[in-house]
C-alpha cells in the first residue's frame, strides 16, 4: 500500500493473514446477529415485518461482506484458497484433467 520504505517485514503475507481472519469472523458475527431476535422474543411485542426486514438485512450484509473479502483473497498468486502458514495449501486447482 504505502510507498514509504518501512521496517515492516513480509507486508503482503501479513495483509493476507488478516484478510483470512476477516473471512473467518464473518460467519461468527452473522450467527450472533441471526440469533439476536431470540433475546427479546418473549417480552417484546415485535413487528413481524420489521423482524423480517432485520433478518434479510443481516443476511444481505453477510453476503456482501463475503463477496468483498473473497475479491481481496482472489489476488493471491497461490490461488484463492492459499494460506501463507500452510505449506501445502497452494496446491494447483483443476486437478481434473
Amino acid at each position: 500500500m504505502s510507498r514509504v520504505p518501512t521496517t515492516f517485514l513480509a507486508r503482503e503475507t501479513y495483509r493476507r493473514r488478516r484478510i483470512i481472519d476477516a473471512i473467518r469472523v464473518v460467519p461468527i458475527v452473522a450467527l450472533l446477529l441471526f440469533m439476536l431476535p431470540m433475546l427479546g422474543a418473549a417480552q417484546m411485542a415485535r413487528s413481524t415485518a420489521l423482524a423480517g426486514i432485520y433478518l434479510f438485512a443481516v443476511w444481505l450484509a453477510a453476503i456482501l461482506a463475503t463477496a468483498l473479502i473473497n475479491r481481496a483473497l482472489a489476488g493471491s498468486p497461490g490461488g484463492v484458497g492459499a494460506d501463507p502458514l500452510e505449506p501445502g495449501s497452494t496446491a494447483p486447482d483443476e486437478t481434473d484433467p
Binding site: R24, V26, P27, A30, L31, I63, T66
Partner: peptide, 8 residues
C-alpha cells in the same frame, strides 16, 4: 448461508 460464508 453460514456454512458457505464460513467456507474457510
Amino acid at each position: 448461508t453460514l456454512v458457505l460464508v464460513g467456507w474457510w
